[in-house]
Design a protein around this nucleic acid. Sequence first.
DNA 1: AAAGAAAGTGTAAGCGATTACATTAATAAG
DNA 2: CTTATTAATGTAATCGCTTACACTTTCTTT
Lengths: 344, 344
Amino acid sequence: MIIAPITISDIAKKSKVSVATVSRVLNDSDKVKEQTKEKVLKAINELNYAPSDIARSLSRNITNTIGVVVPDINNPFFGQVIKGISSVTDKNDLYMLLCDTDENEEKEMKFIEMLKRQRIRGLIITPTADNDKFNAKYLSILENLNVPVVLLDRDVKYSKFDGVFLDSISGTYDAIECFIKEGHRKIAIISGPLSSKPGRDRLRGYKKALTMNGIEIDDRYIFYGDFRLESGYELSQEILKMEDPPTAIFVSNNMMNLGCIKALTEANVRIPEDMALIGFDEIELLNIMNMDISVVSRPTAQMGEVAMKILLDRLNEQKIDNQDTKRIILLPTLILRGSEKKEK
Amino acid sequence: MIIAPITISDIAKKSKVSVATVSRVLNDSDKVKEQTKEKVLKAINELNYAPSDIARSLSRNITNTIGVVVPDINNPFFGQVIKGISSVTDKNDLYMLLCDTDENEEKEMKFIEMLKRQRIRGLIITPTADNDKFNAKYLSILENLNVPVVLLDRDVKYSKFDGVFLDSISGTYDAIECFIKEGHRKIAIISGPLSSKPGRDRLRGYKKALTMNGIEIDDRYIFYGDFRLESGYELSQEILKMEDPPTAIFVSNNMMNLGCIKALTEANVRIPEDMALIGFDEIELLNIMNMDISVVSRPTAQMGEVAMKILLDRLNEQKIDNQDTKRIILLPTLILRGSEKKEK
DNA sequence: AAAGAAAGTGTAAGCGATTACATTAATAAG
DNA sequence: CTTATTAATGTAATCGCTTACACTTTCTTT
């Protein structure tokens, strides 16, 4: 089903002017006599004409699309992030080409190459890979795009791209310190995998908080999960079986936190009477269900918004030689709802 | 930051052939001597050239982007739908321009006009408005796109676009009948707004099931919400206050269902011992938390996939005169987890 | 009323590809 | 060794816009 759309020359013909004049009316670029302008607008209206962004992009040699590459749209975090990005693109006449990589490196690289052909003006990306295996190839593909890139939430080693990240260390630090102030001394952490930066950082925050408060780090209380629900569930069960169990648990992300809550609930362990708990990332449902779990909360939509604003600035920059990387590190908020308490 | 990308003529120059030959290599369109081909590929490789889809679209007079317009990416339903759409676009070299209308009619119409300028090849859309106020204008804007349109989940009055919908009537019918078989006679419904087709259909299914089973419809048991959590919460509280309360509640969507569960939980009403419950749409997190609530479940990702496949068929169609509208109506599944039971 | 300035409009090249048609090179047939 | 075929490549128009430059009107000004 192909119907040739109306073109600028149809309008020119109908309103008896040249295409140049029509173009001027379209872009308000030069003085056009009021009377002529009306004629042209009338023709545009009658024929329902909409100029082709394709042709416009080609002749101006610049597009108005930006690429957004995320690992999983179904993750509420990225849903929010995309909302944040949209809020900026909407106001700036930019379009969003969305790619969902499914946490698959190959797919991701393929998408980036597709986006290059689409001549996107800029890219916001949450990379899948943080391992050395792909690093070199990955970097070269990104560099090769030759457009501004803004990393979101996940960093890429050895890169000097702009980025918006979250201070996981301080977020975790605050949570642990809060436990300590409550009187907890035996504090466990369900950490993420150390192959990911957020995983590493959250563990670091944990250790730092203990050390700074003169509490010795006890390796028995450190558990390594993989950010997925099941690992949170299983590790929590292990914790409950310990001889000298902790009185508080910090869980490094929302999915593992759910797993942990599930395990505690099933074992009839009350929160916080029997076990105090703080997790990383909000879980909307828990709030709805009045389950008061304290969390380290990230400003998700804001992260998308800030990323897009950085990108926008780059797009408006004149000089190419601007080498200073902009890396924004947002702070999470510790939201206390009572689950951190130590009841005697 | 604008760096002129490599063009086809750079490749032509470097490999000492004409642009036509390079194009042939790029598209495998005509016989090219093996030796020449290699030369060209080598140049492409060395210069890291990627052909411009913009220029290609212009000269072929056809793009490879499709528009996807949804009311809210954060709604898990649409997240899943987008995944379904992606699964098809990925395999067919199509790009997805994503627009989030925030349930705002004005915004939606603006997006459609933007997409027209982008010369999208087709559109998948879940319209915000189902009211007569916008209908005429809305239809004309969609028609004016002159590309195949596939409606998703929500219909547009008087339109003859293709579409993928869900049989809300039968889904609700089954749920209510299930209640009846369990022995329930006093069954309440928290309906959606009647201004929306899903709202109307679900209420219709409810009434039909009662009637077909010889149970009189009692208007006191019909409550009208707005699909949002709060209304589910408040209406449930009303239900609990009734003199002659129902023994079972059917809730017309996931958000109101959460509201209902919240109200029941707060009032210490046990499910299903004190009140049986079936909702429309899965709530993933409830399952994780071992809260066994029976639901009418929709094949969400499949809806996106089917919609995209219909669109794909349209894109591949030769003749323009194909007037037969394709409307697929998928069936929901009643998933029983025990919350529908009537305990004595 | 003539000359110069300003305003309005048109002509045509160019953006980076595709492709019909023309041309040349290579191979087969006589 | 021509000539007819076929294979390989090149030339140039085209897609729908933008825009530099040229040209024509329409004021101003004296």
